[in-house]
């Protein structure tokens, strides 16, 4: 094989073969079955299923809320990883462990807990109620749940990069006359950008697929706070398997396109800097 490079570690064929087989069975096979199933629909029926006004509204809610949640975590995730790497304070390890908790908790539990706290009579929700802001049972609640669920991604991708950032870079910039703000914007942030993008993409992808936590806090009002995964479930409950499949295929295509774009962007920037 032309692309096989000589290496002291044997097993290129075995490792690549295993990778392909594994990905095929775990990822590719179920997804292609999904696409295959959707071909049971005529083009017209497919279009009808995926362009129903109620379904279109759910795309907007899902992708919109996911985008907002991932963006919020992009900023707070950077802040949290900065605090965890740059400062030492009592209870640091405890907070560090806390970050991973949203991964471990059953998502439904998270949804119910959030819904209880942020409901109009809940311990936090009651303060928003007089302001006319409804957190739970509205799109804001969806964003909140998705923000909770996707918190660890940015923190965990940025943290190691920040840890490896040589202090010399900042010292060099400082000796060249840069202010703290300039050092952050011109030196630190661009160095962290690939990791931030990865974290953002992961958080976004996870948010799009999230179901368990959202349905408890969303209120699930048609056209307002219904997410696309919920549309799929409700189709299934009506035994409309083909309709559910069609919506799933749309989600798959959009998610994959977005992830491909983000990965492409990273690949391009790495190549430009001569690291590939």
């Amino acid at each position: 094989m032309a692309f096989k490079k000589h290496s002291v570690l044997p097993g290129f064929n075995l490792a690549l073969g295993y990778t392909l087989l594994y990905l095929s069975i775990i990822v590719l096979l179920p997804l292609s079955a999904l696409v295959l199933k959707s071909t049971g629909l005529t083009a017209e029926a497919f279009w009808h299923a995926v362009s129903e006004p109620r379904v279109v509204a759910s795309y907007k809610v899902t992708f919109g809320a996911s985008l907002i949640a991932a963006t919020i975590n992009l900023i707070t995730g950077l802040l949290i990883s900065w605090v965890l790497v740059r400062y030492s304070f009592p209870g640091k390890r405890f907070i560090d462990a806390l970050v991973d908790l949203p991964f471990a908790l059953p998502t439904a539990v998270a949804g119910i807990a959030l819904a209880t706290i942020y409901a109009p009579n809940g311990s936090i929700g009651q303060w928003f109620e007089p302001l006319g802001i409804k957190v739970a049972f509205s799109p804001i609640g969806i964003v909140l749940a998705l923000t909770f669920i996707t918190l660890p991604f940015v923190v965990r991708t940025v943290q190691p990069v920040l840890q490896d950032l040589e202090p010399e870079l900042e010292e060099a910039a400082s000796s060249l006359g840069a202010t703290r703000l300039q050092i952050f914007w011109k030196v630190i942030l661009p160095t962290l950008l690939p990791a931030l993008l990865t974290g953002f993409a992961l958080a976004f992808a996870r948010a799009i697929g999230e179901y368990g936590s959202v349905i408890f806090i969303a209120g699930n009002m048609p056209y307002v706070s219904e997410i696309t995964p919920l549309m799929i479930i409700s189709k299934l409950e009506q035994y409309d398997y083909l309709g559910a499949t069609a919506i799933a295929v749309v989600m798959l295509v959009v998610s994959f396109t977005l992830l491909l774009l983000i990965n492409g962007l990273q690949w391009w920037s790495a190549k430009r800097m001569g690291r590939r």
Binding site: E168, E171, A172, A173, S175, G177, A178, T179
Partner: peptide
Amino acid sequence: RERQVGFVFQHYALF
């Protein structure tokens, strides 16, 4: 920042 020194590091510290 205000000392006007040029500093060269062992491991270059280029951006």
